[in-house]
Amino acid sequence: MSIEDEILNYLAAERFPDGAPKDLTNDYDLIDSGTIDSRLMVGLIVLLERQYSIQFGSNDIVPRNFRSINALAAFVRSQTGGQ
């Protein structure tokens, strides 16, 4: 499963259990739309750290890395050497 799909599945299960918005694409703005709240932030970090053996430093937890599914996936790739 791609990193993007992993994140999408997590968001769908945790944030939109009764159906994700139709425009929830990899570019969907997760912050301005209010999709990411404090609880989901922690959940995403725990999931990605565990799944990809990376570690978020506190200066990585910034809006630009969480703006969209693509941004999160790009961050993960930058930490895993693009794997």
């Binding site: 209010g34 937890i61 910034v62 969480f66």
Partner: peptide
Amino acid sequence: LPRNSFGIT
């Protein structure tokens, strides 16, 4: 109540 927990927010 803030929207999320980013430092800037």
